[in-house]
Design a protein around this nucleic acid. Structure first.
Length: 739
DNA sequence: TGTCCGAGTTTTTTT
DNA sequence: AACTCGGACA
């Protein structure tokens, strides 16, 4: 509190310049580990303490929930008071807040709900079925992608010009139908949150004016990840009176696939007046070797704003490269290294294992479990994305809004209550022809006696069930007064009540399988979550608040634990974090860089940036690993080392003899097929992985030695093969007949 | 209507 | 390997 001056002393000159500039709109180019968050948090503290700016006049926007939480925590410590009521949050949560407050101006029902991408996908599929579009010809994923893309660019169906192109026509048709369905059901997807709040300001200048006046200082983190609509939103908010500071690193832009535009960072100086640029280039995180490797990798990209990270730290340990025999071997290598690390008195939580795609975590997990090492995995299917949780949430959603069709679809026959396909189809049809929600369609069908007695009874039971579960209701059958739910019943009691009455709990109890048990535990966990949930936003009902939390934060997939765990996550999830020891795994062509990103320079450059992000997570020690063969999509695939490895200078690398530890320790796990220890002298594997039609890792057959696996090429005609029965032989391709 | 089975398909990254 | 979908059958 009274260390106002002290905290400025901890900044270097560039950082201090960024923190204390009160004249300009600021662009802070902050390299990895250069104290980006420090600058942001210190600036907030400086504004409040030194400039007497009210905390309520500050808007701080981040990209991920993790970053938002961290910023809140650190600001709280610096200014020594709670940040409640301060506008610090992700773009999405802030957009949501605006929409809740001004739902009328945004043309939304008060009870509008957020749908996640899975809900969105289901809804799109439903709509496409209604439009009689063949799923094989028109993948729903593609339509989903198209819709989000348009929204990210701020484009509504009505502003799309009719085209001759069948693809465009079809997509437009789906988009328009989807938009209508969302509006009718009061549903808002992620992209819609941003687009709507942009339009909110566009259509209500007095509102915009209010916020532009209120927010004297706007701070934006990870600016390189903003998309068109977010950029436009910020531009509207900033005028001659208030100031914006953006912090970003064009080399860490890894969300292009989600509509992020690196160009925004270039555009800033042109679109905003009176700007000044500060570069943070001193890295406080990593060793010289790690930084050198990172710089080398990223230098393969064109069109960079350019900066050069440097450090006062020494070179440190060399980076270790390990060529594994297969994915299991890779996992085992990592496990062994971590065991060594902890045996030296270090903590397991100081180690992070990073991978390109979530699917890679499985083998790693299995190996860690075998070795009895505790781990924590970020990402993957998160808590609120689990099927059983979403089923439960669907009931809760119906409590608030009966017209939530996706929610109704989800649980109308779960647990099964005799409402089968025939009835369901009829409901959908009725809804469509009359412009009803499905709930309304159900009522309509019953009123008109359009069903068989059996179906009618079953349907009635369902409607009654929902109505009686609703704590607001006495006997109302489906009225549409969308008043906010009353707070009579505490959230957790309501949840428990719903889980029991709906029969959902019972449904998962019937099945005695391991999976069902797990689902039941998750449901119990959901009740706990509602118990512990504190409502941040008093203006809405606890239930609405909780559902928002579930949609926007999605939760971790394992309970928060501060225990000493190895950290597993994707490279994307690792952004913004740092660890003493980092294992960067699966450095193979097609995996990292990913196959999907290898067809264009832009995408490949994004992969390279992702690699840069991965490398710069490491503080002390970096391991790079790849495997010669790997289980992919259910079958063993041969792999080639990633091109990114080639970019790393030899001088900061040390190659660890591959597979030598295969034979020791866990011999039983992988039996006879294991080749004898492979020792690579130089980095021959990387430069030569194929020769003629043969590739490293390929299974070949020799008329005398039988079957074997190609380990290596020497020169341009000699091949090293590990035969199942005869061990490793070096053969001359010109003589030996391999097939 | 509900359930079971087999065939076929599919896989990046996240708010 | 994991999921979805459609069809056959109870």
């Amino acid at each position: 509190m009274n260390n106002n001056m002290n905290y400025l002393d901890t900044l270097n000159p560039a950082q201090r310049e960024a923190v204390t500039d009160d004249q300009h709109n600021l662009l802070v180019l902050a390299g990895a580990g250069s104290g980006k968050t420090k600058v942001l948090t210190h600036r907030i503290a400086w504004l409040i303490h030194q400039q007497q700016i009210s905390p309520y006049a500050i808007l701080a926007v981040t990209f991920t929930n993790k970053a938002a939480h961290e910023m809140k925590d650190r600001v709280e410590k610096l200014i020594d008071m709670p940040t409640n009521g301060m506008w610090i949050g992700t773009f999405h949560s802030i957009a949501h807040r605006l929409l809740r407050m001004h739902w009328q101006n945004a043309n939304l029902p008060e009870t509008f709900q957020i749908i996640d991408s899975e809900d969105q996908y289901r809804l799109i599929r439903r709509i496409m079925k209604n439009l009689n579009l063949d799923e094989a010809a028109w993948p729903p994923k593609q339509a989903q992608w198209y819709i989000n893309k348009q929204k990210d660019e701020g484009i509504r169906p009505k502003s799309i010009i009719e085209s001759q192109d069948l693809f465009q026509q079809t997509m437009l048709k789906i988009y328009a139908a989807y938009e209508k369905a969302c509006q009718q059901s009061g549903l808002v997807d992620f992209a819609e949150l941003l687009l709507r709040s942009h339009e909110l300001w566009l259509n209500n200048p007095e509102l915009l004016n209010h916020y532009a006046k209120r927010f004297q200082h706007i701070l934006v983190d990870e600016f390189q990840d903003t998309n068109t609509i977010q950029y436009a939103w910020l531009r509207m908010l900033v005028n001659e009176k208030n100031k914006i500071m953006i912090v970003g690193d064009d080399d860490q832009s890894i969300y292009g696939w989600r509509g992020a535009k690196i160009e925004n960072i270039h555009q800033f100086e042109k679109d905003f007046s009176n700007t000044s640029t500060v570069r943070l280039e001193q890295n406080y995180r990593s060793t010289g070797n790690i930084l050198q490797a990172a710089n080398a990798v990223i230098s393969g990209n064109y069109n960079r704003l350019g900066k050069n990270l440097w450090t006062q730290a020494g070179k440190g340990e060399p980076i270790s490269l390990y060529a594994a025999f297969n994915d299991r071997d890779e996992a085992r290598f990592i496990t062994n290294r971590i065991i060594t690390w902890t045996q030296q008195g270090n903590k397991a939580c100081e180690c992070a294992i990073l991978y390109r795609s979530n699917a890679q975590s499985r083998v790693l997990e299995e190996t860690l479990i075998q070795a009895n090492l505790p781990y924590r995995i970020y990402g993957g299917t998160r808590f609120y994305e689990r099927a059983e949780i979403k089923n439960a949430l669907a009931y809760l959603r119906l409590m608030i809004n009966r017209n939530d069709d996706p929610a109704l679809e989800r649980i109308i026959n779960l647990p099964t209550r005799g409402i089968g396909n025939t009835t369901l189809t009829l409901i959908r049809q009725t809804a469509r022809t009359n412009n009803f929600s499905m709930w309304q369609a159900c009522q309509h069908l019953i009123k008109n006696d359009s069903l068989t007695t059996r179906s009618q009874n079953n349907l009635l039971t369902f409607l009654d069930l929902i109505n009686t579960m609703d704590p607001r209701s006495t006997d109302r059958v489906g009225d549409d007064t969308q008043q906010a739910i009353t707070n009579e019943l505490p959230l957790h009691e309501l949840t428990e009540h719903v889980l029991t009455c709906s029969g959902l709990l019972e449904y998962y109890k019937k099945d005695k399988s391991e999976k069902s048990l797990n689902r039941r535990e998750n449901l119990t966990e959901l009740i706990n979550a509602t118990k512990e949930f504190d409502v941040e936003d008093e203006s809405t009902s606890p239930l609405t608040s909780f559902l928002t939390h579930a949609a926007l934060e999605a939760g971790e997939n394992q309970a928060e634990s501060h225990s000493d765990c190895i950290q597993l996550m994707t490279l994307h999830a690792a952004k913004g974090l740092e660890f003493p020891v980092v294992f960067l795994t699966g450095l193979e062509e097609g995996l990292f860089p990913h196959q999907m990103s290898m067809d264009s320079v832009e995408k490949l450059e994004e992969e390279r940036r992702l690699c840069y992000v991965g490398i710069t997570r490491a503080k002390q020690k970096l391991y790079l690993t790849y495997a010669h063969t790997r289980m992919l999509h259910g079958s063993e695939m041969c792999r080639q080392p990633s091109q990114f490895l080639r970019a790393i200078p030899n001088e900061c690398l040390e190659e660890i003899a591959g597979a030598s530890r295969l034979s020791s320790g866990q011999a039983r796990a992988v039996p006879l097929q294991i080749p004898r220890p492979i020792s690579y002298k130089k980095r021959s594997v990387i430069t030569e992985t194929s020769c003629g039609n043969f590739k490293v890792g390929q299974t070949v057959s020799h008329n005398k030695f039988g079957e074997g696996i190609i380990l290596n090429f020497e020169g341009n005609a000699r091949v090293q093969v590990n035969f199942k029965k005869f061990g490793t032989k070096t053969l001359d391709l010109n003589y030996a007949k391999l097939s």
